[in-house]
Design a protein around this nucleic acid. Structure first.
Lengths: 169, 169
DNA sequence: CGTGATCCTTACGTTCACGTCAATTTGCCA
DNA sequence: TGGCAAATTGACGTGAACGTAAGGATCACG
């Protein structure tokens, strides 16, 4: 009867690696440098066990690493922010924290988010400028091609539109 | 009387490095691996000389490297595309190339541009999704803060809006 | 034409982010 | 209760992208 929100299937490191598209070594390495939490209270020597939540976390880590292009060290501080927010959520669910403390926590979280946001926005902006430039160049090339085609069409019988080279757009 | 489109001030490697925010070593390295053209016909041992155009090129290289997050090797192939396009422009300016060849060149250029575009678009898309998610989270936090603030306002005299924490928006 | 700043090449060093190997252990299942 | 696949720790290896140091040569300037 109890809800089954997260199956939390007990996964092993190899499963997790396959799920997110990496290797066990990488996961252990991330643990080593503190990017992922060392499975708490695991008797050294025993196999690591992961839940779906940890898989998601790892996915997020890899996504940020790829998209933001930061070092694992920088990423660690960014993730500290995520963790702080998790802390906030946990604390907020409890009733025994006073208003002032809550405000503090929220304000902190906001700061972290804003740091990430400005980072992301800057990169997103630069990327879309690059995209615009490329599109513009593309248009110019296409125009040239049409011009040449028209010219040829005057000399030879108009060829059926062949190999327009459009990739689905 | 001749136009002065590019000052082409003869720059040395240190100047270039400062201009683009890198080091001489990096520039030499990029030459080594063929990412930048070895200054053609420079008697080995003499100082390298650069023009404004090369500075721009280097800026572009570093921009792509940063934004696309690709290896220098991958970047080399992407830049080969740029060069191909430069070739096209040069060839097109000359009259002694026939239509078919022109079409070929343009079509090739188009292919290169499309490869870059799809790469850029994918990343841009992912980044803006990330941005949206962050914005959403931010909004939720802000809402929580306002709620708490209202609650406090009911208990204590309403405080003047202090430290709203907004960073210019 | 001297001289100090900058550059040249060569070569070895370094950091990051893992890969790989080895010797054991652990975990799961017939 | 075997037995075998997968995991564990530890150590060393590796490729990419430069940094750094050494010993000279070159350049701009006075």
């Amino acid at each position: 009867m109890s809800a089954k929100p997260a199956p939390a299937a007990n996964l092993r490191i190899g499963d997790v690696a396959r799920l997110v598209g990496t290797t066990p070594r990488t996961i252990r390495y991330y643990e080593e440098i503190g990017l992922l939490p060392e499975a708490p209270a695991r008797p050294s020597g025993r196999h690591r066990v992961y839940s779906e939540a940890e898989v998601e976390r790892l996915r997020e880590v890899m996504r940020l690493k790829d998209l933001l292009g930061v070092s694992l060290e920088e990423l660690k501080t960014l993730l500290a922010a995520e963790d702080a927010r998790a802390e906030v959520r946990a604390q907020l669910r409890r009733e025994d924290v006073d208003s002032n403390r809550r405000q503090e926590l929220l304000n902190e979280a906001l700061g972290h988010i804003d740091r990430q946001l400005s980072l992301v926005r800057r990169r997103a902006g630069e990327l879309s400028r690059l995209e615009a430039e490329l599109s513009e160049t593309r248009k110019r090339v296409r125009r040239k091609m049409r011009e040449l085609d028209a010219q040829a069409g005057a000399t030879f019988p108009p060829r059926a539109l062949e190999a327009t080279g459009e990739t689905k757009l």
